[in-house]
Amino acid sequence: MNDLLAMLSTAGPLAGGWGIHGLWMRRCVSAARRDPLSGLWTRAPFERRAARLLARNPHTAVVLVDLDGFKALNDTFGHAAGDAAIRSVGGSFAGALAGQPGAVAARLGGDEFAAAVPLADPVSLPWLLSGLHDEITAPFRHGGRDLVLGASIGAALSSDLFPDVRRAGPESLSVLLRLADEAMYAAKRAGGGWNYPGATEQRCTTAAGRRAGRPGTHAPHREEAA
């Protein structure tokens, strides 16, 4: 009996130590899957989570974002300003998707980002894209000045291609990413803003709820990297 109590008293701290170690390891693994600047998922964990969303939700928006003027900002204000911009975009995704339970967002690399967002109703897609665009193109503070970047955003809606969610197989995400990519480049060719198949010109060329000189632009007194 005494031997058993002695063994248990020795095993207790050891088990506790292993529990703490396991928690630490899980946190390390999770951190390795996150982009260190933006705090968003990296590509591989994003794709796994996005694929699960597509298999469970009838209306999932797949969104691609490319920053406009990012290289010019780096060249003009230095790489620290570029890092600040990436951190700001990470916060922008968090703000824009705060009311979208289950949404996942990622930094794919450089100044390219993605999100998969389950929607209760597909008609809310324009408001989602407009809100995300407004968040990303809002001024961010660096070096004592307000800096602004533009953004080109493209999206594709799963229910437009896969009305029956049960038929959304592993290839669905790649198809939707390709369509979102095409929509994003269409927005970029138009000067920025957001776009998706079926979007009207008026939807693409509004910024912060008002007409702009070109999509994604802001008031001229703010410094913007062109």
Rank of each mutant, 00 (worst) to 15 (best):
G91H: 12
V65L: 04
P101N: 07
L67K: 15
G216R: 00
I153L: 13
I20K: 11
R107I: 12
S30K: 11
R210S: 09
G209E: 04
L64D: 02
G102H: 06
G91M: 12
P126Y: 11
L179M: 06
F113Q: 05
M184P: 01
L179P: 01
R87C: 14
R107F: 09
D83Q: 13
A155F: 05
P215E: 02
G69F: 13
H133M: 04
N195D: 08
A94N: 08
H79W: 06
R52P: 00
E224M: 07
T217K: 02
V104E: 13
P118T: 05
I136T: 11
D164G: 09
P122T: 05
A116M: 08
G39Q: 09
A225W: 10
R26I: 05
G198A: 07
S124A: 14
G198Q: 06
R43L: 15
G198F: 14
I153R: 02
A55V: 06
L161W: 01
G95Q: 08
V104A: 12
R87L: 10
A15W: 08
A183T: 05
P197T: 08
S124C: 10
M7A: 14
R26L: 13
A32K: 01
T60M: 03
G213N: 01
V65K: 06
A226Q: 02
R56I: 01
N57Y: 15
V65E: 11
P58H: 01
A180I: 03
L97Q: 08
R222L: 12
E201D: 12
L177R: 10
A6F: 00
V175I: 09
R189N: 08
G17M: 00
G22F: 07
E201M: 08
G209T: 14
P139S: 07
R34I: 13
P36N: 07
A32P: 04
A168T: 14
G169E: 11
L5V: 10
A61N: 05
S130Y: 05
S174A: 15
A98Y: 03
R166H: 11
L67A: 10
G12W: 04
W41S: 11
G19S: 14
T205F: 07
G78A: 11
T137F: 03
K188H: 06
R166S: 13
G91S: 12
A84H: 02
T76Y: 00
G78T: 14
L161Y: 04
S38P: 01
R167P: 03
M25Y: 06
P220H: 05
D68V: 14
P163W: 03
P126L: 08
G213T: 10
W41A: 15
R211L: 15
G154T: 12
S38H: 06
T137A: 14
A151S: 12
D164A: 13
